[in-house]
Design a protein around this nucleic acid. Structure first.
Lengths: 338, 338
DNA sequence: ATGAAAGCGCTAACAT
DNA sequence: ATGTTAGCGCTTTCAT
């Protein structure tokens, strides 16, 4: 699909001829090989500039060179967390000269290993999966099993793998516990949890904190991913005057709860405290500003890429460079009304 | 970066041997060439399945075959409109067997043509630019000039190009005028506009409607892209009791205005009507629900890809298949208080 | 309907 | 320090 027809693009041979050297020397120059005389290198670089030469990635890949690409697999690029993670990956990848491919999966479909591999540009191609639901979690496991040296994932759950070097995650469990305790400490007798599908970390942190306080956790209320689903799922919860505090799986759910609470005539935070997760840019400017948890998705994306690169190129394992989750208290949470 | 070492991936020759045919016949089968005996085709397909063969995209591209990839260029993949457009492109691209590359540009940087081309996997590679600011608009022009047969853009502004077949855009101008008139018809004497950087369509529609009503348009208030920037930029505006209606460049800005209005003690919609653009999923669940304009970004993304494909493969020009912008009246707009 | 030969642009090995 | 020779896996011709 080169389409844009036009004259044949300039190749390494054209450059070689122009510079009066062999094509191999040109190859050395564009790959920053050490043993090239400064004068030669300059000549070649001039020729490259004059001709507007650009290396052909396909030829490079085929010849056994580094392809330098990552494929990002996920189910929803519009979700805030996913979009930010993708952005972090892209930032780091670009800086390292990698190109990034995006492959969106259907959350409601079951993928065979062949389906998954078919999304990679070639066998053994590097992949990062942004995992947050059943489909992506399964994909991350399958891909890692098949090509452990070229697969990395970001994921907010599944503590069993937490320490695996190929799995980058934020400690949402600890901060969920902290948020729950914060609510309890203010005098709430009970904290409810509105859950996004599949996430175990936040849910576990929440029940941990409750258990530590000697409180029996109520059943978590299951919600879908959308604000609409949350508003719907939380209807009964917010209508119950005994419910004074709700921890939500993410900010979208929190907004849904706020909406439902408003409709039910419950004042926030007077009658009801609501806490989200993610700290959407909007959270601070919501009316009232949302108490939530800052999650550094972009940093995690960058970290995932760096880890992948270390795997691929055998460099030193990069130090984690993202912020730890942090509870940000704003105006949707407070002590219960006596 | 094939990394994941392992045994050499199976090639077309392995399949050929297994099926007892030449490698060329295998090539014909995987490319759905017509002149292959049904029996042969079946044999080959079996061999492919048994061996788990997957064609190597790089080799294909190099040999002059279709690369089937699109590079999406934009400045911010986290913006709602951009994320949705990207999603639409990805949907359509996947269905057509194309892979999609994402390349994020820095909005504050000036890019040379070489910089831009360097983001494509090879010379003449297909590209879609999601344009919404100076950087991306410039990129879209430069790329289109350089490779008119392989560049498409989505863009909400710049009417001069509106009818170009390579430029897909929504008619935000007309709907902006409609929204303004709606406000005027309810009795507002004046409508103010809080502008996102660079967009001409909405701004023009707004001033058109004002002019048509014989009203001199006030200076538009310039804002950045963020909710924070909008809240800041709108501070003076919302504080002015003479201001009763504000049209905002997008929903983020509208949320910023709502925040500022709340801080200034102005009731919405009693004292102040606010209208956004984009219809974020959250808009309907905001408290109060936001009056805004539905913009079918995902449809536009799909459309952009289809157009590109038609260019590339010379197919029939696809019919536009996205929804027209539509004003959605919710609860942040109403008649001015007498 | 099928096969054989050539070559895409590049890098890896081996020269020198 | 530089040049020469092979191929990477595939699609094109061009045969048969």
């Amino acid at each position: 699909m080169s389409a844009a027809a036009g004259p044949r693009p300039v190749s390494i041979f054209d450059v070689a001829k122009r510079a009066g050297v062999s094509h191999q020397t040109v190859s050395r120059v564009i790959n920053d090989a050490p043993q090239v005389a400064a004068a030669t290198r300059a000549k070649v670089k001039d020729a490259i500039a004059e001709l507007g030469y650009r290396p052909n990635r396909s030829a490079r890949a085929l010849a056994g060179g580094a392809l330098k690409s990552v494929t990002v697999l996920t189910t929803d690029t519009s979700l805030y967390g996913t979009a930010e993670t993708l952005r972090g990956i892209e930032d780091a990848a670009r800086a390292a000269g990698f190109s990034v491919l995006v492959s969106v999966m259907d959350p409601d479909q079951a993928y065979s290993e062949a389906d998954l591999l078919g999304r990679l540009p070639h066998d053994g191609a590097a992949a990062i999966v942004i995992a947050h639901d059943e489909t992506t979690v399964r994909a991350m496991r399958a891909l890692h099993e098949r090509q452990p040296g070229a697969t990395v994932a970001t994921c907010g759950e599944h503590q069993e793998d937490r320490d695996a070097d190929w799995l980058i995650s934020l400690d949402d469990r600890t901060v969920a516990a902290r948020a729950t305790r914060y609510l309890l400490d203010m005098g709430h007798r009970q904290v409810h949890y509105l859950a996004i599908p599949g996430t175990a970390g936040r849910r576990t942190g929440w029940s941990d904190a409750l258990a530590a306080a000697g409180i029996t956790a109520p059943a978590a209320v299951e919600s879908g991913w959308s604000v609409a689903a949350a508003a719907e799922a939380a209807t009964a919860l917010v209508a119950d005057p005994a419910v004074t505090a709700i921890l939500c799986g993410n900010d979208d759910l929190a907004f849904g709860v706020l909406h439902a609470a408003h409709r039910a005539g419950r004042a926030v935070p007077g009658d009801l405290s609501v806490i989200g997760f993610d700290d959407y840019p909007l959270a601070a400017y919501h009316v009232p500003p949302l108490t939530t948890v800052d999650l550094d998705f972009r940093g995690v994306g960058r970290g995932a890429f760096e880890r992948l690169r270390a795997m691929l190129e055998g460099g030193p394992d990069p130090r984690p460079s993202w912020r730890s989750p942090e509870l940000i208290v704003r105006e949707t949470s407070g002590p219960p009304r006596q």
